[in-house]
């Protein structure tokens, strides 16, 4: 286990190193300059600013400086908000993103599990059809459309929830709903397939032969066996949430990293883009590692073969 963990962490670090390197050199090829009003500045002023950001040094030196910074969690200084450290910027915006992202994930996965199992247990009935339609709709309607509709109808028209801004829990409801749609739909689809598969397996047949009733079969045998593989889609779902958060945070003015990422992209704030890329990558790596470990802990087939090694 320790060996496995060590290996995984090594690969994560390697991945982050490669990602930092690639982003660094991509940013060097970026067109445009960080200076929004270059025309108005004198060459000496420009030189002054370049020196301040370390842009006057050769590229390989800048790279080493950057790498050393990244190791210490220092991503440089934002172009957009001068004098603000990127790491501080990201840190201060992490909270809201984690809150709505986490809530969206939990709500989506839980509802998806219910919807998917209902569809499988009541396969080929109206319940199944409804569950399929809901998940197809939610997986198909783009998050930005859904978010605008939620904002308009539940926020502006019905006035149930604030349409934007960031405050207490009530402000998180609409963004959470918009983010939950994709994990809900994906989980429901995955769960249905998985459970239909499990329900047609030999050991369910044996459970029926034991005289176990329908509820007992689902509760004791089908649920657990179909729930375990769900862990494997948590990684891809996290990616969906990250993607969704970029527009959802924008639409609901949530001061999160998704909103920041889009803002930085539109203002060519390279240090922030690079920092956020590495942060996204690191978060995803950690999620993938955790889900892999969880999978091993929960599935006896993996857990026990790992022990004996």
């Amino acid at each position: 286990m320790v060996k496995y963990l060590g290996k995984r962490i090594f690969y994560i670090i390697l991945t982050l190193f490669i990602v930092s390197t690639i982003t660094f050199f991509l940013m060097k090829f970026m067109p445009g300059t960080p200076l929004t009003n270059q025309a108005k500045l004198t060459p000496s002023q420009i030189h002054q600013i370049y020196k301040q950001y370390g842009l006057d040094k050769p590229v390989w030196q800048q790279y080493l400086v950057y790498l050393a910074g990244v190791v210490h969690g220092n991503f440089g200084v934002s172009f957009q908000f001068s004098n603000q450290a990127v790491s501080y910027l990201i840190g201060s915006r992490m909270g809201p993103s984690l809150i709505i992202g986490g809530q969206g994930m939990i709500v989506g996965v839980l509802l998806g599990l219910v919807l998917g199992s209902l569809g499988a247990v009541k396969a080929n009935t109206w319940i199944d059809t409804t569950s399929t339609i809901v998940s197809i709709l939610l997986v198909s309607i783009p998050s930005f459309v859904l978010a605008v509709l939620l904002q308009y109808y539940l926020g502006l028209k019905l006035r149930w929830f604030p349409i934007a801004d960031w405050g207490g829990f009530i402000y998180t409801v609409l963004p959470t709903m918009a983010l939950a749609a994709s994990p809900l739909a994906e989980t429901a689809r995955f769960m249905r397939t998985e459970m239909v598969d499990v329900l047609s397996s030999d050991y369910i047949e044996l459970a029926k032969a034991k005289g176990l009733g329908k509820v007992g079969i689902i509760y004791h045998h089908a649920l657990r066996n179909s729930l375990i593989p769900i862990i494997t889609i948590i990684g891809p779902l996290t990616v969906n949430i990250m993607t969704g958060s970029m527009v959802v945070e924008n639409i609901f003015s949530v001061p999160g990293i998704g909103e920041q990422f889009v803002k930085s992209v539109l203002t060519n704030d390279y240090p922030t883009i690079m920092g956020l890329t590495i942060v996204y990558c690191a978060m995803l790596c950690v999620v993938l590692l955790i889900t892999d470990i969880l999978y091993g802990l929960i599935d006896p087939r993996i857990r026990l073969s790992g022990q004996s090694n």
Binding site: I12, I18, V19, V239, L276, Y280, C281, L284
Partner: peptide, 9 residues
Amino acid sequence: IMLSIPNLV
């Protein structure tokens, strides 16, 4: 490695 960076990024 490709998988550990969100596609959109």
